[in-house]
Amino acid sequence: MDLLKLIHKELRAEILNKEIIITMLSFGLSIIVIISFTSNLSKQIIEAYAPGLFWLMILFVTVLGVHRSYAYEKEFNAIDLILSAPIDRGLIFIAKALSGFIFITLMQALIVFPYFTFLSIDIDVNFFLLILSTLLINLTLMFVSNLISGISMRARISEILFPVLLFPLISPLIIAATNITNSIINQVPYIEWQVWIYLLISILIVFGLSGYALFDFILEE
């Protein structure tokens, strides 16, 4: 099970230096504070905008976190250790995406309370549905962003190239995520927003498969 070994490596790296979670958490918190200062408007506006702002924050946090998870591979050319191994390189992509999924979910669990408290939003929703859909969005987000991060990883200006490439490609996902969370908060029946779930699943399939198939080319010298 090469995949499990690779995921184990990602998790061990994170447990040892906690770079990714701390980066994401501290950046997320500071974004929330800035959002509170800049959106001192009526309560209705904030509540209507809350899902969009939430995913905007998650997108920024993802950029930093995922970039970090590829940056440490470049230090000491450490990635050579797994590139020289006889493994399917597509699995490196899957492992990075799945461990990124764990990190972003963990980070969200920690940040969701300050988010709603600082912005004084009260919601009363179907939490089961909200959590389930958020997990699917996180997974899709990680597949797309890990593919783009792999592409920009060895570029000279990877920290800029990554968001410049990611933001346009990920816009359908952000539209879907905002609409899903919005619909759940406003208790819209599932039948009216199921199309977004289908869209998410198709993004997951397209980017998951192309990432798995193309990662060998991306990492080859």
């Binding site: 070994k5 690779l6 061990r12 000491f76 050319n77 250790l81 191994a85």
Partner: peptide, 26 residues
């Protein structure tokens, strides 16, 4: 097996952990 100029080890792992990772993938 190519042994390059670059170290090719993870900075934050110990020598033992690095070698174990490489061996297990092989």
């Amino acid at each position: 097996f190519y042994l390059g100029d670059a170290p090719g080890f993870y900075k934050f792992l110990s020598p033992l952990q690095n070698i174990e990772l490489g061996l297990s993938l092989r």
